[in-house]
Structures are given as structure tokens and as C-alpha cells.
């Protein structure tokens, strides 16, 4: 990969911030985007915590948690926050650009190439198989996450409710979340009060 600036995650004390330049931000997230095959979560942690040492594990978890609560892709949110934290607004823009620019170019090249061979039986079979496999990836991921977060009857109730309304009834996302979001927060509140 790139130039070895590889402090360990313990190399800076809490509250003490490592020096990170705009170029570092761009190149770091560029790497995350380019090497994030099959999901960028692992690449993100590798670059930010292990390779560059911008955040320690605890700080990483905290920013990731915030990125997950906010709407949008968790890791794109995270890139914005990390870029901004070290290099301000420009850093946030560079982090985003680094993360998505090359992958978009690659995706378009891939799609254009696909279009030229779209009648080739091998290409058709490969694409259909990849799509079927990726559906399996989603189910597997749901199971993995569900194992840890669906740990009460209420959690199961809300997981089923969101699945039924979006997946089976095909109701609009906005309306569903405007109803289920506040109710699930209210239930958490009520349960923590008891």
C-alpha cells in the first residue's frame, strides 16, 4: 500500500490528537475505498486504527456508533466526521471524495464493460449468481447483527415489525420510520424507567 506512517493505536494519549494532513485524509480514505471489497468496514478500521493510528479503538467505536445512529451509510458518515475532526470542512470533503471517487469510476467502467457483454451467457450467469450470493450476504449479516442486538422480546417485535412493513407490505420507508422510530425509542424509555 502507501508510505509507512504506521504508529500503533496506543501511540497517542487520549485527548492528544495525532497530526494528520489533508493529503493523509484523502489518501487514507482513498485506500479504504479501493480495498474495501465485500464491504468497507474492515478496510476502514484497518486504515484508521491499525495502519494510520488516527483514532484508538474506543474513539473509533464512538464515532462509528454516531455514524450508525445518523441516517445514511454508516461508514460514509464516519469518513465525514473523521475528515472534519482532523482537517475541518475541507477534510470532510476530501475524505468523501477519496472514499467514493475511484469506486464510482470503477463501477461505471464495470457497468460499461458489462453492457458490451450483456448477451454473453457466462456474463449473465455470473451476474445473476453474484446477485443471488449478495442476497445471501444480506441475510447472513442480518443474522449476525440480530444475534447481538435482538436480545429482548421488544427488540424482536420491532425487528419483525420493520421487516413486515417494508419487506412484505412494501410500505413507504418514511412513514414506517416516522411511526416505528418514535415508538421504539418510547418503549426503550419506558423500559429504562421501570
Amino acid at each position: 500500500m502507501d508510505a509507512p506512517v504506521a504508529p500503533s493505536s496506543e501511540s497517542h494519549l487520549p485527548g492528544e490528537r495525532p497530526h494528520v494532513s489533508r493529503l493523509d485524509i484523502f489518501s487514507g480514505f482513498f485506500l479504504v475505498g479501493m480495498f474495501g471489497f465485500g464491504g468497507i468496514a474492515a478496510a476502514m478500521h484497518h486504515v484508521i486504527v491499525e495502519r494510520r493510528g488516527w483514532l484508538n479503538d474506543q474513539e473509533y467505536a464512538s464515532v462509528l456508533g454516531l455514524g450508525q445512529v445518523l441516517p445514511g451509510a454508516n461508514l460514509v458518515n464516519m469518513a465525514t466526521i473523521v475528515g472534519d475532526r482532523f482537517c475541518g470542512f475541507v477534510g470532510a470533503v476530501l475524505a468523501l471524495a477519496g472514499l467514493i471517487f475511484m469506486p464510482i469510476v470503477i463501477l461505471i467502467i464495470l457497468a460499461t464493460t458489462y453492457d458490451q457483454f450483456a448477451t454473453n451467457p457466462d456474463v449473465i450467469a455470473a451476474t445473476r449468481a453474484a446477485a443471488a450470493g449478495a442476497v445471501g450476504l444480506m441475510f447472513g449479516t442480518a443474522y449476525k447483527i440480530g444475534k447481538t442486538v435482538v436480545n429482548t422480546r421488544w427488540a424482536l417485535f420491532f425487528a419483525i415489525l420493520s421487516f413486515v412493513s417494508i419487506g412484505l407490505l412494501r410500505l413507504p420507508l418514511v412513514g414506517t420510520l416516522l411511526v416505528l422510530g418514535p415508538i421504539s425509542v418510547a418503549v426503550s424509555f419506558w423500559r429504562s424507567e421501570r
Binding site: A132, M138, I145, A155, L156, G167, V187, S188
Partner: peptide, 18 residues
């Protein structure tokens, strides 16, 4: 509160794509 909703959404996503 959100993670259980997200699990439901991932399953919904998988179903719709399937």
C-alpha cells in the same frame, strides 16, 4: 432502539432484492 429496526430492514432489503 434503532438496531432491531435495522435488522428488520436488512431482511426486508434481502427479500426485495431476491
Amino acid at each position: 432502539s434503532f438496531p432491531p429496526l435495522v435488522v428488520g430492514l436488512i431482511c426486508a432489503s434481502a427479500l426485495v432484492t431476491a
